[in-house]
Simulated assay, not measured.
Amino acid sequence: MTPPSPAGSFVVIVPAKPPARAKSRLDVLPAARRRDLAAAFARDTVAAARRTPGVAAVLVVTDDFRFAADLRTDGCEVIPDGVSEDLNATLRQAAAEAARRWPDAVPVALCADLPCLVSDDLAAALAEVDGPSFVRDAAGSGTTMYAAAHTAFDPAFGHESAALHLTHGAREIVVAASTLRLDVDEPADLARALELGVGAHTARVWEAQTQ
């Protein structure tokens, strides 16, 4: 792996569906609530990433121009998704753009649905990156984070992605980073996240919607 630059070791890439189309498995919630929570999840995820030592920038990929404006206000760089039906192609395209903008930083793909994420957990995982590396999700079969140098960046998100990343030669990062592992897809995940503690955006949306 190319040694990261001391000025900014990593660039975090966050693929974010338009909130109106995200979190379909939270269908027990009204559509407007689901949309607002999806946006809040992503904004809390990027806020934690931006606070993490060693992160030079956060690059979000989304086709929702209104949401993109909010993310730019939050301090993120934003690009459109040119291959929105293929997450791994989206990530490879974003990594290529990251290489152009931050050639000395290692690209890190991070899920957009980590409303509990704290910077200490992300920092702990990034400190263990050594070649292609990934973090398994709380359910055990998925992936919440994948990192590799530009020349080796080959994400395998999707069904049973943890096993696929191992097959592709990535090394599993095993750290006590519960907030990095808890991606919210289903109502039970949301309940666990609220119990663990969510970021400001998610807390504000949840409180407004439950009053």
Results as ranks from 00 to 15, higher is better:
8 G>Y: 07
10 F>E: 08
16 A>K: 14
17 K>Y: 14
17 K>Q: 13
21 R>Q: 14
25 R>P: 00
28 V>Q: 15
32 A>V: 14
34 R>N: 10
34 R>G: 08
35 R>C: 12
35 R>N: 05
36 D>W: 05
39 A>D: 05
40 A>V: 08
40 A>G: 11
41 F>W: 03
46 V>Y: 03
47 A>Q: 15
49 A>H: 09
49 A>G: 03
52 T>R: 13
55 V>C: 05
55 V>D: 05
56 A>S: 08
57 A>V: 10
59 L>E: 06
61 V>L: 02
63 D>W: 01
63 D>V: 02
73 T>C: 03
73 T>E: 11
75 G>V: 13
82 G>M: 02
84 S>W: 01
85 E>Y: 07
92 R>N: 01
100 R>S: 12
101 R>E: 07
102 W>M: 09
103 P>A: 12
112 A>M: 13
119 S>P: 13
122 L>T: 07
123 A>F: 09
125 A>E: 00
125 A>T: 02
136 R>P: 01
136 R>K: 07
137 D>C: 06
139 A>P: 00
140 G>A: 07
147 A>V: 04
149 A>M: 02
152 A>K: 04
153 F>P: 01
156 A>N: 06
156 A>F: 01
158 G>C: 12
166 L>P: 04
168 H>F: 06
171 R>Y: 09
174 V>S: 08
184 V>Y: 02
184 V>C: 05
185 D>W: 13
187 P>Y: 08
192 R>H: 12
192 R>E: 12
198 V>D: 10
202 T>K: 01
205 V>C: 04
